[in-house]
Design a protein around this nucleic acid. Structure first.
Length: 299
DNA sequence: AGTAGCACCTGATTGC
DNA sequence: TGCAATCAGGTGCTAC
């Protein structure tokens, strides 16, 4: 479940079910899921026997802190990754199951599956590095550490430590269309294709507006809109259109019913009634209202 | 240094 | 009915 609200619902599920558990065994069902590790067996060896202390997230990057920050079990869900937790009735691994973990807890064993139809997601065992500002590395832990593979991305839209002025400066420094800046995970992480379109619609900013042409008021409004949309989606359990995007219990979120732009090309704009536009921009399908979101808008 | 393009995959849907 | 083309919530490497 790719964007921030969906990954956060997964993080909360992991926090509820696997905190304090010990990793008894790891079964890699498709080698490429551990492609960032030296080998699937090296991945399994690095985490087997470890205890899970925290479930942490920054943007779309998720990790479990093992053995008091000795090792990170990091996970990226890519386009289609899921975690599923089973306690009593453990099914035969799904055809999309790429790795299965067996955990031991005070209340008995748990099975944790990592499913990923399109295989863009991955699991990795790696070291931690310190954050530059010394503040908590992500939501779910007060530790000022992040996995090495997460160090290059910015803080996410809902992180209290996000520095607003820095974001606005970096957005306005870009020459690309503002949508591409929104998707740049090194500035603000967690924004994906759905919420980029939603935030732009809400802030009435055209997706192809050169970022450097935006006023400070416009970028400020865009960051506000991004945070609002993310917060509302999170409260609704995330966005899902089908069984591919579910929480650790296999349940879907409902925010798709509240989307105003994404996936609504040709349908009337909820503000003005004009049919929404749809086009490929920067390789991603993009939806906007030509009337409410004119190019060259000054504020 | 910053940016565009493409590669990485599977599967559902659409169109001929 | 069959088969090819298109599209999908992302990231990261390469080549300009």
């Amino acid at each position: 479940m790719p964007e921030l609200p969906e990954v956060e619902s997964v993080r909360v599920g992991l926090e509820q079910h696997v905190l304090g558990a010990t990793i008894a065994s790891v079964d890699v069902l498709r080698d490429s899921v551990a492609r960032r590790s030296v080998s699937p067996s090296a991945f399994a060896d690095a985490i087997t026997g470890a205890s899970i202390d925290a479930a942490v997230r920054r943007g779309k990057f998720l990790w479990l802190s093992l053995d008091a920050d000795a090792v990170a079990l990091s996970a990226h869900l890519g386009m289609s990754g899921q975690f599923r937790v089973y306690r009593d009735d453990v099914p035969v691994p799904h055809s999309h199951c790429r790795a299965r973990f067996t955990l031991t807890t005070a209340n008995g064993p748990i099975t944790l599956d990592f499913l990923d139809q399109r295989t863009f997601g991955y699991l990795h065992a790696e070291s931690f590095v310190h954050t530059a500002d010394g503040l908590a590395g992500g939501l779910g832990s007060a530790s000022p550490l992040v996995p090495e593979s997460v160090a290059h991305i910015g803080r996410d839209a809902l992180d209290p430590a996000l520095v607003r002025s820095t974001v606005l400066t970096q957005w306005r420094r870009g020459i690309r269309g503002i949508k591409q800046l929104l998707l740049d995970q090194t500035i603000v992480s967690g924004i994906g294709n759905i919420y980029a379109d939603e935030a732009l619609w809400r802030a009435r900013v055209n997706p192809v507006t050169p970022a450097s042409a935006l006023t400070g008021k416009a970028t400020g409004g865009l960051l506000d809109a991004t945070q609002q949309v993310m917060g509302e989606a999170l409260a609704a359990g995330g966005t899902s259109f089908d069984a591919l995007y579910v929480n650790v219990n296999g349940e879907s979120g409902y925010f798709d019913r509240a989307l105003n732009a994404y996936g609504r090309g040709g349908e009337p704009c909820a503000r003005c009634g004009r049919p929404l536009q749809r086009a490929m921009i920067g390789g991603r399908s993009t939806h906007w209202c030509a009337k409410c979101q004119p190019v060259g808008r000054r504020s």
